[in-house]
Nucleic acid binder design. Structure first.
Length: 509
RNA sequence: CGCGGGGUGGAGCAGCCCGGUCAGCUCGGUUGGCUCAUAACCAACAGGUCGCAGGUUCGAAUCCUGCCCCCGCAACCA
């Protein structure tokens, strides 16, 4: 049934360590993929690394390594990071892969009708051997701060992709949602941006200024420059153009990107595809950025939050939960350690973990763990499904928590512990108790189902605990309280021991 | 007049497109209940000019106009 599905993530430029922005890409793509798989679909899921360019070559030189040696190392770093986030990708593409490089050269030739030679003029720093944008030049007063030399206005020859030729086609595809840009306001924003037409884009650099890249076929003096090389990964990883089967997955169903690169994915990528004569992706899911305490995360400010630290302390599922629910899927979000920890302790610990605990405990205590027939929960799944289909994962999780809360309310209303008092003498009471607990289990199992895309390990624990009809033992406490960044309300008389393996710096203010 | 987003009880948000049944949710605070549970859970309360000023309407957080403030973007940086 149905076509196989394909989801992609932006391939990070490997000149730095993985950060939260990358994690968000992987997480959103993975949530979507797991949801689809849960519904019986076959999903191909691409991740990868962008490895060419001067900055990479410079980084490598810094580390006294060959570029490829450096990117080999970085690719490993990213791969293990992606695994750590729990993303079940199927393909890992590197722009230095032989097949990718060959495919990009093939693409270059295929795009010949839309490639022309022109000159690029800009501010150049001989020390950096690179161009700088007007904004950067302006900000530094026209003098390179690193080399104390004024920028030079120079021009150089390079090749351009005639993206402008596809303006009308691209606009129509976006307007008619043939290529859907999510959320709607980003679509609007981009259409406004391209109001005067798409701009042709420079896609090569002279070899003398760029050495680390894919050679331009037929012109030894030129090397390909970022976008053509990087964007092509989405199809080359599937085997385009020469290997069988890429058509099974292209066009992509969802391409997950950050808001900062929408313009390239909406303004350069579609022209490339149209030039090659293949379909546009169906959806560009554009997520926002993660701020810290309302401010942009930046190295110079020093407020960068390392996702590894979060995962190490609170666990992967807690990490996935927070970023899926409290960073709106389609908009900017805000992270603080206080918010994170509060969410962890209250929503995961008090709400979810605790309800699992209390139901399991009652089953063991009152019925020797025997569940009996757990009835199907009668909750209305439509709001959740709708949110998932609309790519509003945070809204879907809100729905799940409504269920968690209502289960707690149900238990408090029915008071199984009251019923249990007479269960040994009153057959009706015993039956009633069994029914109440079975109903609770039915709810928990459904909650676990809905959590599968978001918190796979947690969902598995719940399924394993209640799914067999007998609870053999009360499971270990899920999401034990942690007070690393928030005050411990359990009293200060005892040196409250948050069993945290590795402490993170508390504040970045 | 460059483009986009936003200003709702202490904090964070939903509602606005399809005007009234909207002033809602979570966290935090207070009080009470309960004891199955991770000092947890349940209930109630505390009361905010829905940025400001006009307008439309029987009626506006929700539509229109003007203004103020905050954030992001302004083509090759997640």
């Amino acid at each position: 049934m149905g076509k196989n599905l394909y989801v992609t993530t932006a391939i990070p430029y490997v000149n730095g360590a993985p950060h939260i922005g990358h994690a968000l890409d992987y997480l959103l793509a993975d949530v979507w993929a797991r949801y689809q798989k849960q519904n019986g679909k076959t999903v191909r899921f691409q991740v990868g690394t962008d490895e060419h360019g001067n900055k990479i070559a410079a980084k490598a030189a810094e580390a006294n390594m060959a570029p490829k040696q450096y990117t080999d190392q970085m690719a490993t770093v990213f791969e293990s990071f992606i695994k750590k986030v729990g993303a079940e990708y199927t393909d890992f593409v590197r722009t230095t892969d032989p097949h990718h490089e060959a495919a990009v050269q093939w693409i270059w030739q295929k795009l010949q009708p839309y490639i022309y030679k022109g000159s690029y003029e800009g501010w150049y720093c001989t020390g950096h051997e690179a161009f700088f944008t007007d904004k950067e030049v302006e900000a530094t007063g026209g003098v390179c701060p690193d080399h104390q030399k004024p920028y030079e206005r120079i021009s150089e020859e390079n090749y351009y992709l005639k993206a402008s030729a596809f303006t009308d086609q691209v606009r129509e595809a976006i307007e008619k949602n043939k290529m859907r840009i999510v959320p709607e306001f980003r679509k609007k924003e981009f259409l406004e941006l391209m109001k005067d037409g798409l701009k042709d884009v420079s896609i090569s650099r002279p070899r003398k200024t760029l050495t680390w890249g894919v050679p331009v076929p037929g012109d030894p003096e030129q090397v390909m420059y970022v976008w053509l090389d990087a964007l092509a990964n989405y199809i080359t990883v599937l085997g385009y153009p020469d290997k069988e089967g890429w058509q099974e997955y292209w066009p992509a169903d969802v391409q997950v990107i950050g808001k900062d690169i929408l313009r390239f994915h909406a303004g350069i990528w579609p022209p490339m595809l149209l030039g090659l004569g293949i379909s546009l992706p169906k959806t560009l899911l554009t997520h926002g950025h993660v701020n810290v305490g309302g401010a942009k995360m930046s190295k110079s400010v020093g407020n960068v939050v390392d996702p590894n630290g979060i995962m190490d302390t609170y666990g992967v599922d807690a990490f996935r939960y927070f970023f899926a629910r409290h960073i709106p899927t389609q908009d900017d979000g805000d992270f603080t350690w206080e918010k994170f920890e509060t969410s962890y302790n209250t929503e995961l610990g008090n709400d979810l973990g605790n309800v699992v605990q209390r139901v399991a405990s009652m089953l063991v205590r009152y019925q020797a763990g025997v569940i009996g027939e757990a009835p199907q929960s009668e909750h209305d799944m439509r709001p959740y499904r709708e949110a998932m289909e609309n790519l509003q994962f945070n809204v879907a999780l809100d729905q799940v928590w409504l269920m968690v809360r209502s289960l707690n309310q149900y238990i408090d209303t029915v008071k199984p512990w009251e019923i249990a008092k007479t269960k040994d003498t009153d057959q009706d009471a015993a039956e009633h108790l069994a029914e109440v607990l079975a109903t609770s289990v039915g709810n928990l199992l459904q909650i676990a189902d809905l959590l599968v895309p978001f918190m796979p390990s947690t969902a598995k624990i719940i399924h394993d605990t209640f799914g067999t009809g007998v609870v053999t033992a009360v499971p270990a406490v899920m999401f034990p309280k942690l007070y690393v960044h928030t005050p411990d309300p359990r009293g200060g008389s005892q040196p409250a021991a948050p069993t945290v393996a590795n402490e993170q710096p508390a504040d970045h203010a």
